[in-house]
Computed example of a mutant assay.
Amino acid sequence: LRHASHTVKVPQMAESITEGTLAQWVKSVGESVAEDEEVASIETDKIDVPVNAPFAGVIKEALVAEGDTVTVGQDLFVIEEGDEGSSPASKKEEPAKSEPAEEAKAAPADSKPVEESKEERAASSSPPPKEPAAKPTAPTKSEPEAAAPSASFSRNEERIKMNRMRLRIAERLKESQNTAASLTTFNECDMSSLMEMRKLYKDEIIKKSGVKIGFMGAFTKACTLAMREIPAVNAAIEGNDTMVYRDYVDVSIAVATPKGLVTPVLRNAESRSIVEIENEIYTLGSKARDNKLTLEDMAGGTFTISNGGVFGSLYGTPIINMPQTAVLGLHAVKERAVVVDGKVEARPMMYLALTYDHRMLDGREAVTFLRLVKEYIEDPRKMLL
């Protein structure tokens, strides 16, 4: 019985994405797949797009090789309807399993008793003659030479083609540097009050909501409150001659993944509590690390927060995520000597860095915004006023 075959094409990925690279064949030719099971993965400059089987069947032919560029609507593979089929590994094992069976069948025929003469039995019972022991050979000159490279220094080089996401990141970073009039302003923040608040209420928050409180929720909330006084931080330049002001704040959260930096978007941060923000950040971060972000998760964004402190960064100047106007860089918390009420004390301090587009923001506005964020963090009770 012959089942109908169907050619699966490269699916629509997004309005702005028309091509990608076939990153991996998850299923091989001859393997059976279930309906909606992933067959291949296409890498784009933003996310990896899975290609699933439209129905249960067997992969009959792969029309594209791994590493090839594919376009939307291009023929990708042929699948035959039906649930029969097996993996290549099982097919290889079948002949191996049949060999012992054939040997077992042949054994009775070979073991048939045969009349032997006394001389033959004597000859067969006598031990075989001993072979002369091989004389030890002197080591050749090549043996010491084989050990020589381990004592020498390596001079190897490896060239790896940049994947689409890495290429896109490089393109956007250069676009930002070439377009925005970037300037960075700095401040330092005493984290004592926020750390004390987290210590007091973290167990209660986990018990009520299951959310582990961190620093990102508080900083995100502080930024949305500071934007009420300095709305230009959340605005953007459109068409080089128009300024767009927004009454919502969609915060792009920078997340490091094995393939590169991605910035999933936290929608309407201005309307969320600190705990709600922390919960959403955790969800987006998990999706990013598991490579399960969708294009909708990363679309838009009006302001970016990048926390290099989780990797130990003490000081840095983040790059603007165009077409946004500003990005806030958070850094590691370190005990430093500071003057408090005329006395030198050790306090947990963090450097803050705000990189902004000077075409949209004046220095006074940028400095005021960062000072407001600092004040909210140093006294979190202000965020309730």
Results as ranks from 00 to 15, higher is better:
5 S>E: 15
10 V>Q: 09
11 P>Y: 10
13 M>W: 06
17 I>K: 09
23 A>D: 04
25 W>N: 00
27 K>V: 02
29 V>I: 14
29 V>P: 10
35 E>L: 02
43 E>R: 04
53 A>P: 05
57 G>F: 05
63 L>D: 07
66 E>T: 13
68 D>C: 02
70 V>D: 09
73 G>V: 04
73 G>R: 03
75 D>M: 01
77 F>V: 10
77 F>R: 04
80 E>N: 04
87 S>M: 10
87 S>I: 12
88 P>G: 01
89 A>G: 12
89 A>R: 15
95 P>M: 08
96 A>G: 04
101 A>D: 14
108 P>L: 11
111 S>L: 13
111 S>H: 01
111 S>N: 14
129 P>L: 12
133 A>E: 15
139 P>S: 11
143 E>N: 08
146 A>E: 13
147 A>K: 13
155 R>M: 04
155 R>P: 00
165 M>Y: 02
180 A>E: 01
181 A>K: 03
183 L>W: 01
183 L>P: 00
186 F>G: 05
187 N>H: 09
188 E>R: 08
190 D>I: 05
191 M>N: 12
204 E>G: 05
208 K>C: 01
210 G>R: 05
217 G>A: 07
221 K>S: 07
242 T>P: 00
248 Y>K: 01
250 D>P: 04
254 A>V: 10
257 T>F: 05
265 V>N: 12
275 V>T: 15
276 E>Y: 07
282 Y>R: 15
283 T>G: 09
284 L>R: 11
292 K>L: 08
293 L>R: 11
309 G>V: 05
321 N>I: 02
321 N>Y: 05
321 N>T: 02
325 T>V: 13
327 V>R: 06
336 R>L: 14
338 V>R: 10
340 V>L: 09
341 D>A: 13
345 E>H: 06
346 A>Y: 03
348 P>W: 12
350 M>T: 11
350 M>D: 11
361 L>D: 06
362 D>R: 09
367 V>P: 07
375 E>S: 15
381 R>T: 14
